[in-house]
Amino acid sequence: MTHDKLNGSIHVPTQQLFNLHGKIAIVTGATGGIGLPVTVALAEAGASIVSIQVPRDINADALRIAVEATGQTFRYFECNLMDASSIKTCFTEIWDAGIVPDILFHAAGITHKSTVVETSVGTLDRVIDLNIKAAYLVCQAFGERLITLGRPGKVINIASMAADLVQEGVNVYSSSKAFVRSMTRGMSNEWARYGIQVNSVSPGWIATGMCRDMSQDADFHQYVVDRTSSGRWGQPEDLRGVVIFLASAASDFITGADILVDGGVLFR
């Protein structure tokens, strides 16, 4: 392979475009409904995994077993992503451990349903702390490290179709995901000169634990099926390909983009 990401892509053999062997991926939310299958897919594509996760995460063992079954290395660091000092400490521990990163997959986030009038300051604080502040600080720490090391890299943030389809009762969540998209574009502009691509993925209605109440409501379930051109709910596995694409050499000239994975909702 003849390739220099910082000075221009010369040639990557087609069979190597999606190969992540030798790469290290730092992942937040790796034990979640979307995070777990996508993180395992990154490992299957060849990446070693560094998981940033909450202490005593009940899905931690399942994640470790699944990643190690691919033959890739798995390491984890515990962090409270709702606390700025904890994020700073966590990344210091990661760098002190000698980890040299290539990919950041930031999937951690929370949703909340309430009307605008019902939304409390406490709810705002929780959503802002995780969906906005943590997203910014995690990307900031990752990008700063790559720039310091003079290395190219990839950042993939999970946004949401909700940034466009703002339904009643999800205003605070939708607003936070609109921020993620805007943040992604801003960071992409600053970091492209360093060979760092920053993109986001906006899932539609995905059948995860976060959406269990909605998917188990018969009327809403049918509404989603009828509203989606593909005629079904999305599955977490539907996001594997796009994240691997954005993490790989195949997307070296794509930055600041948001890729909608909604089965055909917004443009129906």
Score class of each variant (00 low, 15 high):
residue 32 G to P: 03
residue 101 P to W: 15
residue 159 A to R: 04
residue 140 Q to R: 06
residue 116 V to E: 10
residue 231 G to E: 01
residue 49 I to P: 10
residue 44 E to M: 08
residue 111 T to H: 09
residue 197 Q to L: 07
residue 149 L to E: 08
residue 129 D to C: 06
residue 55 P to Y: 12
residue 166 V to I: 14
residue 43 A to I: 03
residue 60 A to F: 02
residue 203 P to S: 04
residue 190 E to R: 11
residue 97 A to V: 08
residue 183 M to F: 13
residue 37 P to H: 09
residue 204 G to E: 07
residue 51 S to R: 06
residue 192 A to W: 10
residue 228 T to D: 01
residue 73 T to H: 11
residue 239 L to Q: 13
residue 10 I to E: 12
residue 25 A to K: 00
residue 241 G to R: 02
residue 219 D to N: 08
residue 258 D to S: 05
residue 147 I to G: 14
residue 23 K to Y: 11
residue 50 V to F: 15
residue 243 V to N: 07
residue 75 R to Y: 05
residue 239 L to T: 08
residue 192 A to S: 13
residue 261 V to M: 11
residue 167 Q to M: 11
residue 209 G to P: 15
residue 151 R to P: 00
residue 217 D to F: 07
residue 70 T to Y: 01
residue 196 I to W: 11
residue 137 L to D: 00
residue 203 P to G: 04
residue 15 Q to L: 14
residue 129 D to M: 03
residue 82 M to P: 04
residue 43 A to L: 03
residue 78 E to A: 13
residue 214 M to G: 13
residue 71 G to Y: 07
residue 21 H to M: 01
residue 118 E to L: 02
residue 20 L to Y: 06
residue 25 A to C: 07
residue 46 G to F: 00
residue 202 S to V: 02
residue 5 K to F: 01
residue 171 N to P: 09
residue 69 A to F: 00
residue 194 Y to R: 08
residue 145 R to T: 04
residue 89 T to N: 11
residue 229 S to A: 15
residue 109 G to C: 13
residue 265 V to S: 08
residue 163 A to M: 14
residue 5 K to H: 04
residue 64 R to E: 12
residue 258 D to H: 05
residue 232 R to Q: 07
residue 180 V to T: 13
residue 138 V to D: 05
residue 9 S to T: 13
residue 140 Q to S: 05
residue 19 N to L: 13
residue 254 I to L: 12
residue 250 A to N: 11
residue 31 T to E: 00
residue 87 I to Q: 00
residue 209 G to Q: 15
residue 61 D to N: 10
residue 91 F to G: 01
residue 122 G to L: 10
residue 265 V to C: 06
residue 38 V to A: 01
residue 125 D to W: 00
residue 10 I to A: 08
residue 45 A to C: 04
residue 80 N to K: 00
residue 198 V to K: 10
residue 132 I to V: 09
residue 257 A to F: 03
residue 28 T to Y: 13
residue 185 R to A: 10
residue 130 L to H: 02
residue 20 L to Q: 02
residue 142 F to D: 02
residue 96 D to Y: 01
residue 49 I to K: 05
residue 107 A to H: 09
residue 74 F to W: 11
residue 181 R to C: 13
residue 252 D to Y: 10
residue 79 C to Q: 00
residue 32 G to D: 00
residue 107 A to R: 01
residue 248 S to G: 12
residue 69 A to N: 15
residue 155 V to S: 06
residue 30 A to I: 07
residue 7 N to G: 09
residue 218 A to E: 14
residue 49 I to V: 03
residue 45 A to N: 09
residue 102 D to I: 07
residue 177 K to R: 11
residue 92 T to M: 05
residue 194 Y to C: 06
residue 237 E to G: 14
residue 8 G to F: 12
residue 23 K to Q: 10
residue 12 V to K: 13
residue 264 G to D: 06
residue 188 S to D: 15
residue 56 R to Y: 15
residue 69 A to S: 14
residue 171 N to V: 14
residue 208 T to R: 01
residue 246 L to E: 03
residue 187 M to A: 04
residue 206 I to D: 07
residue 156 I to R: 11
residue 126 R to L: 04
residue 39 T to H: 04
residue 137 L to V: 05
residue 102 D to T: 08
residue 166 V to A: 08
residue 180 V to K: 05
residue 110 I to L: 13
residue 125 D to V: 00
